[in-house]
Write a protein that binds this DNA or RNA. Structure first.
Lengths: 168, 168
DNA sequence: CTGTTTGTTCGGTACACTCTGAACAAACGA
DNA sequence: TCGTTTGTTCAGAGTGTACCGAACAAACAG
């Protein structure tokens, strides 16, 4: 088993991360940068990421900013006191998914629900089609919000256990 | 309470659907078309959708195809025996979310897991960084797949109940 | 102080995606 | 049969996004 084989395996997984990134609405470069950091033993600076990914410095700078903002990677504020910024990957995938979930899904549910409630408040309960349909929507979204709120408090193991042990 | 007010409320909710569509990786037109169908009492044909949305015929044709493919709307195969195709909206939001979940998230988890497992199978258990990291990934994704599989069998009410009644 | 390294910002290019309008095929009504 | 309506397909216009290279600012080493 050579160093080469490990590199190949690593590359395959990183390519898979590139693809996942697209599914989650991020760019392919975001997937690769996260992947390189995921496998790196030490925190990496922007020039080092330029070397290992082949992307331009500006691309690394922009992508690391957004990845940091959504919590996929962390800024190690200069251990040596230098200016050099170094990044590490958040390796707890469950945390990442929870963050993404919170920032995209939960937020989406919340704003939609607010819109629905506001529209509903202006309409009388007159049994017209629009009113009825909006009411249906409201109920569904209230359920969804409840589920999302509850789920965000669970760890992966707890969630799995809760689903496995649930008796209908 | 005038017909006008109802139209305004309806329009607000449809705009919200346009936005949701973007979050789920669909076009704005998809959100509006779904919204118009959601509020319509009767199934609508493509020319009727052209009237009510203002989009070009070709746009309606293309978007209805993708919406049908992912199960957000249904093709009512010509009740009158005519050529006219008519569409209805799937109003059970929970079903829609389950479908989207199944087609995007579950699929993504599955292909990623396969890649990881294949990469892992080619590496010895030698305690090197790559091997270790890939092992971590594999465990996480196996958990995720289990959760996704379990969750796809639940109704919204069951899921909510399972989470609410779970005692850690 | 001067040259080097690091990181951010900005303008530009390449590309994908949405939507349109026109051309076309299929089914209908006269 | 011929004109009309419906639905699909295709090339192209317009738009947004990813990425790059250059210019710039900030901090360091000498």
């Amino acid at each position: 088993m050579s160093e080469d084989d490990r590199a190949v395996a690593r590359e395959r997984v990183i390519e898979s991360m590139e693809q996942s990134a697209e599914v989650y609405g991020l760019s392919r470069s975001a997937g690769r940068i996260y992947g390189v950091l995921y496998f790196s033993d030490d925190p990496l600076s922007i020039p080092e990421l330029v070397d290992q990914t082949g992307y331009a410095k500006s691309t690394i700078s922009n992508v690391t900013r957004t990845l940091t903002r959504i919590g996929l990677i962390h800024r190690r504020s200069s251990a040596g006191g230098g200016r050099r910024v170094r990044y590490t990957a958040e390796r707890e995938i469950w945390f990442i998914l929870q963050d993404v979930f919170q920032q995209y899904v939960q937020r989406e549910i919340q704003t939609t629900l607010r819109t629905i409630q506001r529209a509903q408040a202006q309409l009388p309960d007159d049994g017209e089609t629009e009113t009825e349909r909006i009411e249906e929507l409201q109920e569904t979204y209230e359920d969804l919000q409840e589920i999302a709120t509850l789920a965000s408090d669970f760890t992966a193991a707890e969630l799995r256990d809760a689903l496995e042990s649930y008796d209908r």
